[in-house]
Amino acid sequence: MNRDHLLSETGRIIRETVQCGPVAITRATRAMDVRGWDSLSHTMILMQLEDGFGIQLPMERVLTLGTVGELVDLIAELKAG
């Protein structure tokens, strides 16, 4: 799965989790750009990403990330590794 595909799948999972409708999610997207993606729903999004990609996110790292792009890079790293 290449980065574009990962990004598209990550966007789909985020949209489904927060039920924000067909909003564009790009590498530059931040939580605050997406309705429903607040600090309280963040953990649920991370869980859905774990389920969707079959990975376990290291919380120490994931909590320091700022953009969807950084999140996708981490997922790619975990999938490769």
Binding site: C20, S39, L40
Partner: peptide, 16 residues
């Protein structure tokens, strides 16, 4: 720290 406790309300979500 900001106080929250997500683990008791795992189904919290913003309702559109």
């Amino acid at each position: 720290p900001t106080l929250w406790l997500k683990l008791l309300w795992p189904t919290y979500a913003v309702d559109p």
